[in-house]
Structures are given as C-alpha cells and as structure tokens.
Amino acid sequence: MEDQQFSAEDGLKVIQDMISRTREDLSYDSFYLLLWGWLVVSICLLQFILLEYFKWPYHYLAWTLIWIGIIASIIRAITEKRRERVRTYVGDALKFIWLGMFAAFIILGSVCGILQLWQGCFPLYIILYSLGTFITGGLIRFKPLLIGGMACWVLAIVAALVPYDLQIIFGAVAILVSYVIPGHILRYRQIQRHKLSQAS
C-alpha cells in the first residue's frame, strides 16, 4: 500500500476495508469452547455410566478429569500470549469473564461439597454455563452462543425438577447446546473466512 493522495470515496473504502479485515482476524477462538465443551460432556456421561451402570459410590471422581482442560488451557494461553500481536478491549473483557467463570465453577463445586448439596448442583452449574456463553455471544455478536445460553435457562429449570442422575444428563445436554454446537459453528465459519482471505 503506497502513500498517495486519494479521493474521499477511497478514504471511506480504506476505512471499511481495514475495519472488516481486522474484525475477521479477531473473531473469538473456538478452541476453548470445543475443549471444555467436549471434556465436560464426556465427564458428565462418564459420571452417569459410573453411577447408573456400575453403581460406583465415588462416581463424582470422574470430575478429576477436569485437570486435562486446565492443563490444556494453560498451555494454549501461554502459546497465544507469545504469538499475540494485537489486543482488543473485547478480548481482554472475555479473558476476565472466563477466568471469573472458572473460579465460580470451582467455588460452587466446593460449596456444594461442604454443604452436601450435590443433589442440586447441576441446575446451578447450568445457570453458570448460560451466563458465560450468553455474555460471550453478546460481545462477539454470535447468535448460536446467545441461543445456547438462553436454552440453558430452560434446561436449568427443568433439571431442578428431575432426580440427580438425570440432572447429569441435563448438564451434558446444556454443554452440548451452549458450548459444543456453537463451538463447531464458530470453527466452521473461521475455516471458511480463512479460506476466503487466502483466496483474496
């Protein structure tokens, strides 16, 4: 791009072109949605199988697999930080939101354990899932996340009406609609955009 005098029309075109090129580049990374989505769905299903089919009293130990997500997220965050060439206000806000959400998940799990409230913890977890995805969907203007977040509101209420073993399944369904499905749609769109930008 050479520095040359140009018309007002060209000026408007440059602004539109640069803003759109930057926006495409800064779309939210689907990695964390897919990692945590599939991990929590797998943990929920494993816990359900341990509880229902093996009658194992320590079925909740399935949640220790969450360390896989923690370690993978830390590695990814360090790698991203090294490669980061641009920072946005939305990106920074999302980091704090998800860090706060993660702390809330851990604290809620601990509180439920201390107070022996396991029978009612899944509806509360589903409410937290909805909060994270709904805010993220709003900030990045991505409808599937907003819809997933809203679907969780209904699932949280229904989950409160069913026994604990079924609540686990509701937890898996909530993660499927609020993380996994939007995560795959987002990933597909990112791949398509990347192909388009490579072609242009």
Binding site: M18, I19, L26, V86, R87, T88
Partner: peptide, 8 residues
C-alpha cells in the same frame, strides 16, 4: 482504521 478497532 485498524487502531480504532483494537486496544493495541
């Protein structure tokens, strides 16, 4: 135009 859309 780029810098107006990002923090840095």
């Amino acid at each position: 135009s780029i810098l107006i859309s990002v923090k840095e």
